[in-house]
């Protein structure tokens, strides 16, 4: 049962003793079954808050405005019990750190059986058979033996494969991978990217990949949302984002990636300035203080989301459709 996901006008603020932190502001995103969506941005841009909101796992001090509709249901309005059912059944998360994703005192097999607790129709033996098949699918040789292993007996790359298998066992309609390769070495990263790409062929749900690594986003995603200081500043097809970026922040972020330059640079490009405070976000454009193109309205008027093509949009005064 998978369906479209849409967040509209989504804002999240954290109430803290030092005032409220506006971690996410008027975010609109949408995703359709079969799509791989990338969310890219630097630390503090709100990408983790966004996926945490999508998985309905925000802490108690978070206040949400706007709506997240998944398959026609407003997730924010569900009670705690229904939310939990949805997480076990429909929404799965693959975290950044494969080391802490598992319980260290249970075998992999036992944990993956528990992941299927909502499948009352299956016997334990059937569940174990599903696990063995799924482990094989994510490229783990000797699945039966691995099911009797404890997490510490597996390498980082193998644990991340098991985490992906665990997520897929629930047949989720929405799979969220938060920095899935950040903790891995480059040769293992390439293998996990390859695995995710293989898996999407016969998986019909939505995949959301969150990463700060532009290479990972370019390798995996169909559409990309670029986030900065709690806002989605640009969204579009992966080719448009990487080859025709329109928002000055997207352009600057791409220009900073040393992987784009094959010739040696004497100075690496940077983005001067710092992130604005999220307790008092700027009234105008969030990127204006660091933007090279700023003009009069940028500092005082928040820019609208300008639609450039059917699915390419940027939040900037300087772009025109």
């Amino acid at each position: 049962m998978s369906g479209p996901l849409a967040a509209s006008g989504l804002s999240v603020r954290y109430e803290t003793p030092h005032g409220s932190v506006h971690a996410l502001r008027h975010v609109d995103i949408e995703a359709h079954p079969g799509e791989v969506i990338g969310i890219v941005g630097e630390s503090g841009c709100g990408k983790s808050t966004l996926v945490t909101a999508l998985a309905n796992l925000l802490p108690a001090n978070a206040r949400i405005d706007g709506s997240i509709r998944y398959n026609g249901v407003d997730l924010a309005k569900l009670d705690a019990h229904r939310q939990r059912l949805l997480r076990g059944d429909e929404i799965a998360l693959v975290g950044q750190d494969p080391m802490t994703a598992f319980n260290p005192v249970l075998t992999i097999g036992d944990q993956l059986v528990d992941f299927q607790h909502h499948r009352k129709d299956l016997s334990r033996a059937q569940k174990r058979a599903r696990i063995a098949a799924m482990l094989g699918r994510v490229g783990i040789a000797d699945a039966e033996r691995r099911m009797r292993s404890y997490p510490h007996e597996l390498s980082g790359g193998m644990r991340q494969r098991v985490a992906i298998a665990a997520a897929l066992l629930t047949d989720p309609g929405l799979l969220i991978a938060d920095e899935p390769t950040t903790a891995l070495d480059v040769t293992m990263e390439a293998q996990i990217i390859h695995l995710l790409r293989e898996l999407r062929r016969d998986y019909n749900g939505i995949v959301i990949v969150v990463s700060h690594h532009l290479g990972v986003i370019a390798e995996l995603c169909d559409r990309v949302y670029v986030m900065y200081a709690g806002e989605v500043v640009e969204g579009g097809e992966v080719d448009a984002i990487f080859h025709d970026p329109r928002h000055p922040y997207t352009q600057a972020l791409l220009a900073c990636d040393p992987a784009r330059f094959r010739e040696r640079l004497d100075r690496l490009p940077t983005i001067p300035g710092a992130l604005p405070s999220l307790t008092q976000p700027p009234v105008g454009c969030v990127y204006a203080p660091r933007c090279g193109r700023g003009f009069a309205p940028c500092k005082t008027v928040a820019p609208p989301l300008v639609k450039l093509t059917a699915c390419h949009a940027a939040r900037c005064h300087a772009v025109t459709s």
Binding site: D185, T187, A190, H213, G215, A218, V238, D257, A259
Partner: peptide, 25 residues
């Protein structure tokens, strides 16, 4: 050569099709 080829390229038009190496260190 394997290390250099494994590095993801920030360009969707130049996606790699097979990992340069399998297995682990």
């Amino acid at each position: 050569a394997t290390l250099i080829r494994s590095e993801p390229i920030p360009d969707p038009r130049r996606r790699s099709h097979k990992p340069a190496v399998t297995g682990e260190i």
